[in-house]
Structures are given as structure tokens and as C-alpha cells.
Design a protein around this nucleic acid. Structure first.
Lengths: 349, 349
DNA sequence: TAGAGGCTGGACAACGTTGTCAGATGGAGG
DNA sequence: CCTCCATCTGACAACGTTGTCCAGCCTCTA
């Protein structure tokens, strides 16, 4: 009558819907609680025979150690959080993956969340992660005031900002050289004879957008070219707005002969506009694109290394976690100009 | 002498390097532990004056409730895990994002991890998440034996598989219609006059790859076209192998006049090969690509809706979590053929 | 045979929170 | 002035784990 036998044993085991605990395992194996703990953690001091009995009970009950409880006891959760802008953006894929790889190498799990470029949501997410007691936080800022993280950082949450600097607090940050990259990209267009060059970028409150615009201005100033207001357009990166902005620059008596685009989303839309445009217009974009080399002409871009950004940030985070905390630092990674044709077109007029 | 005063208070407060707890807050506010809990959770039955004192102490100490501990008491962790193949793959970005949005709507945080197509790593990751007591798991299988998850599922971890079915267990799964999609894509090529059609896909042990091959075979059989062994190539999707495979099919006395590619990585490489190829070769790819419409010719694809895949899976997971668990179900989402030119090229000979 | 010493196993507290329950306090009514 | 009730507050146990510490047992030696 195995059924009754089983039923007779169960009461000491798992309650329905609940997972068995070490206590249940101990009861079933007829040993003490701590002995189960020792077996589960491979600690010495358990007879092979006892160990066998415990293992058997573990198997039979389907026990798995509750790491949440473990963590409560131990102090560290071995998990970190990544707050980024949009998990679906191809730029952030490699970045997340790089962070994940570093985390994995440190036996750490990764929470992932998107702020959708909403400062409030960023804060909500970051604080929820802190409440879960992540050991560290990698944040791609959406907002420009991160004082809300100050108590957390002080309390030991290793925090590193990536892609954009934090606002109103001192903390580690890993950036691309947005200014220098944009400047060299625009200089590249100037070197190919362009003088009327448009700039279409993201909302000016976003640091990267502002920096890239600054690079654009600097390159123009270096060349002694006065910039017309109508050549610059900053705002949301939805296709409709970008399309309008591009078409505006390309019309009128003195249209631009080249466009510098401030990020991958803008670049894609502008490529579409240019494909329908009668005149040949040069283009250099910030951020690389997957098929950029296969278009006609190939798209010349200022490429950032998203994976390096993520890796550097995560490594910095773990260094902070492992050793004595170094002073906050600003790390800037170089960009790379990749020429593929669109940036080398001569002015059309 | 505010300094000594502060120092006199501190001992009851946070120990160095540790976060203040409710106990610390209670001590500082001169109230009981439970009262702090009540304030933190907005429970009724606290005088405004008491509440003010507690709030003050919370501010002063930088207290934040430890949700890990809370969870231990409560039973649910309000977190789910997503095990996918590669966070950096553009196909999985929208999928993750969709899962995240659904999770967010349920006040749930998301753990994210990549298996890198390694069954062992998938298992390690999934079990680590179970040990953290995630409420549920969304898994894109890398392996073909998921019996290791049986005890977890039985213990209440709501589990949904996506993109590929689980191996050797019964569970919810959300799939694209890989067979039907491939079949219609190949039929499309046949309708445009092709008879010698190549297929380049991922490793045959991957379910989606096998299904798409099956669709290819079915379409060919429907048209009464015998398939030559040399027209089919399954294996790793690294560019070198795919390039070799494509070049082989395109050479010899009877080269293929069209190629059907089994996923986005393969498609990209084949586009590169075809760009250098003297003859016009038709192409239909499985999975959409960001700039597919801008290439010359535009790339005809069988598109799956990655976001819908993720959303459907996550919704299923939460339904299972909320209500009474429904029987495991297999949900298949339709694909869509998007014609852009490359699939409508006539045979070159 | 007794004492020393090594090994195994278990009782107990603690991690930070919440639920239960009982105690304290204050005001109203007899 | 005393009692009763409502309201507010706090002590305590519990969640599942690990670290500390001590008890029991066995073996070896004097």
C-alpha cells in the first residue's frame, strides 16, 4: 500500500503548494537541520552514510535551497541591476550582454529594466532594485538628477553610470567620446568639401545629444563656417519628426548638402528620406548599423563600442565591490569613424 | 555640540557599511518595530505625530525597506526570470522588452540571462533563478531535455517556453509558425519560377531550424520538385560557414537560382555573398531585418512578431500565476511574408 | 580502565521583515 | 471616581537559511 505509506510520510514533508525546506529534508532523513545545510553546501564533517540519506531525502522531496533566505543571512545578494533606456534598442543589446557576461564571471545574476527615457520610471526602477538589495547598479540615466541614489550609494550599492553622466551627484561614469566623435564626423564632411551641413539629433536634455551637437558646432567653428539655425534640429526621434526636419533642411534656396545624424534611430529615418531625394546628399551617422555596409552608398558612421561600454562599466562595478572603493572616476571610450561611402560624397551643387 | 550628540545616537543606528533596518528606525524614533512597519506600509492606526517622527527617522537614516526579507516572509518574490539565447541578438531585444512590459504591469521585476545556445548554461541559469525563488520563468530553450525543471514547476514556478518547445516535459509554449512560414516563403520563390532553391539554416538540433527545413521540404514537395542534398546546409550560423555554404550552392554546373535563409544571422551573411555575386539570385529570409527595405533589391522576408511572442508568453505566465493553473497549451503565432524585391527576382538562367 | 582528543551531529540565535495578539492609553459614560 | 471601549502601540514568533557552540561518541594511549 505505497499510497498510504506516502501519505503518512508527507505531513512531515512539504505542505501543499509550498516548497520543502531544509527542515523537511532533515525530518525525512532523520538528521538535524544543520546537517542538511552542511550537505547542501558541501561542508566537511558528514559521514558518507549520513550524506547519502540526506541526498536521498533531497531528491525525494525535490528540495532546492532558497537563495533568498540564504542571502538574507549572508549580506550579499549576488545580483546586480541594469537600468537602461530600451531593451529593444539594438544599441543596448550588446551593452546588456557585456554586463551580463561580466556578472556571470562573478557568479552574479542580472536584473534588467527599461526606463523608456522617463526619469520617474528610471528612479522607480532603480529604487526597486535597491530595495531588493542588489549589490550594484549599472544605470543609463534618463533623468538629470540622481540625488535620490545618494543614500543607496552611501549604504554600499556600487553604482556605475553608462552612456550618460549622472546628474548632481559624484559617481563612476563610463562614456563614449560623444563630443570628439561628432566633431571628427562633421570634420570628415567638411574635409570632403561640404559647408552647409545639417545636424539632426535627439532631445537636447539628453547628454549624448547635447555633446554631439557641441561636437558639430566645434567642427564647424574650427572650419570657420557660421552655422544657420535652420541647419540644426533637436527633438524626439520618432520618424515623423525626423522626416520633417530632414525635408526642411533639404528644401529652400540654400539646402544643406550633407547631414550629420545624432543617433541610430535618426540615421535610419534619414536614410529613408535620402533614398527618395533627387539630389545626392552626404551622410554621416552617429552609431553603427547592422547592414550599413550593404546600402548604396554604404553608410559612413561614427561607431561606439557598446559592448566595451557595458564591459568597462561592469568591471568597474565589481572592482568597487571587491576591493576598497576607489574615488569616482569618469572614463571616456574613443569612437571610431568608419568610412563606407555616404560620408565621402562631394557636395551636389 | 551636535557632533557628540550625533555620535551618541549612532550606536543605536546603522553599523558601518550596513544599512539601517526597521529596528534602527524604531530606536531612533523611539517607537516599536511594528509601528515602523506600519508607517512604511501605509497601514492604518498610527497617529500623525508618531508617523511624523518615524518618517523623520527614516529620512535621517536613509532607510529603505529590504524587500528580500519582506519576500521571505510573504512567499512571493514578485520577480520572474527570462532565459534567452543571446541578449545581444536583435531578435530577442523586442521579445525581452515585451516580457518586461507585462512584468512591469504586474509589479514584477525581471531577471535576464543568456544561455549562449548552451544547454548546460541554460539549466544552470534557470535553476539559479529558481533558487532565487522567481515566481515564474520564461525560457527560450537551448537544450532538448527540460525534465530538470519538473520539480520546480510542480513546486509552483510558472513556466512558459517561447520560440522553441521544451524537451521531454509538458508545459506551456508559445511558438511562431516556423513550418508554415518557411513553407510559404519557399512557395513564394517557386511561384516566381524558381526550381533550384537552396536552404541555409541553423543547427538541426534547434527546433526552429528543423521546422523551417520541414517547411522548405514541404513546399518543394508540393511543387513536385525533387530536392538535391547539396541544396541544403544546416549548421552553426557563423559567417564563415554560411559563406562557404552559399558559395557552394551558387557554383557548379547547376547552381541554385534562389536561396531561402533560415534566420536573420544567416540572411545577413548571404546578402553579403550575393552582393559580390555576378548572377542575380533571389532571396527570401526568415526574420525581418532593420534596413531590409533600403537594400537594392529590398529583402523579402518571412517576419515573426518577436514582441507578440514575448507578450503572449508573459501574459500566459501571469494568468497561470494569478488564477487556477490551466492545462499546458501550445500557442502558435502566425508569420507574415513581406515582399520587397529580393524574393520576386526571376531565375537568372 | 580512565582520560584525552578527534570527529560527527544538533540546538539555538540571527539576518530583516510582517502577522498575531495583547497591553497601554485616553476619553466617554455611569 | 470608576468602568468600559476604542484606539494606538509593541512584544513575539515566524519565514528559510547559516554560524556558533556544545554534547555525545569513538578511538587511542597511559
Amino acid at each position: 500500500m505505497p499510497d498510504t505509506a506516502r501519505r503518512a510520510e508527507e505531513p512531515a514533508g512539504a505542505r501543499y503548494g509550498n516548497r520543502p525546506t531544509m527542515k523537511d529534508v532533515a525530518a525525512r532523513a532523520g538528521v538535524g537541520l544543520k546537517t542538511v545545510s552542511r550537505v547542501v553546501n558541501g561542508e566537511p564533517g558528514v559521514t558518507p552514510e549520513t550524506e547519502r540519506r540526506v541526498q536521498e531525502a533531497i531528491e525525494a522531496l525535490g528540495f532546492r535551497r532558497n537563495d533568498s533566505a540564504r542571502v538574507l543571512r549572508k549580506g550579499r545578494t549576488s545580483s546586480i541591476g541594469l537600468v537602461l533606456e530600451d531593451l529593444a534598442d539594438p544599441f543596448y543589446g550588446p551593452l546588456s550582454r557585456a554586463v551580463e557576461e561580466v556578472a556571470r564571471a562573478h557568479g552574479t545574476l542580472l536584473f534588467n529594466g527599461s526606463s523608456a527615457e522617463d526619469p520617474e520610471r528610471e528612479q522607480e526602477l532603480a529604487l526597486a532594485l535597491c530595495a531588493r538589495r542588489v549589490d550594484g547598479l549599472v544605470v543609463i540615466p534618463a533623468g538629470d538628477d540622481h540625488r535620490y541614489l545618494e543614500p543607496e550609494i552611501k549604504a554600499g550599492v556600487a553604482t556605475v553610470f553608462v552612456d550618460r553622466p549622472p546628474g548632481r551627484i559624484e559617481a563612476d561614469v563610463v562614456l563614449s567620446d560623444n563630443y570628439g566623435g561628432a566633431r571628427s564626423g562633421v570634420a570628415h564632411l567638411i574635409a570632403h568639401g561640404h559647408r552647409r551641413i545639417g545636424f539632426i539629433g535627439d532631445m537636447p536634455r539628453i547628454h549624448t545629444a547635447a555633446e554631439r551637437l557641441r561636437g558639430y558646432r566645434a567642427a564647424m567653428e574650427d572650419a570657420g563656417i557660421p552655422v544657420a539655425e535652420s541647419w540644426m534640429s533637436l527633438g524626439a526621434t520618432d520618424p515623423e519628426r525626423v522626416r520633417r526636419a530632414a525635408e526642411e533642411m533639404l528644401s529652400g534656396p540654400h539646402p544643406v548638402t550633407a547631414i550629420f545624424t545624432g543617433n541610430n534611430r535618426v540615421t535610419v529615418t534619414v536614410i529613408r528620406v535620402l533614398a527618395e531625394h533627387p539630389r545626392r546628399v552626404a551622410l554621416v551617422g552617429f552609431d553603427d548599423l547592422e547592414l550599413a555596409d550593404l546600402l548604396k552608398p554604404g553608410v559612413t558612421v561614427v561607431a561606439q563600442d557598446a559592448a566595451a561600454l557595458g564591459r568597462t562599466a561592469a568591471e568597474r562595478l565589481f572592482r568597487r565591490l571587491d576591493g576598497s572603493p576607489p574615488a569616482p572616476e569618469r572614463i571616456e571610450l574613443p569612437t571610431r569613424l568608419i568610412t563606407r561611402g555616404s560620408g565621402e560624397l562631394p557636395p551636389a551643387d
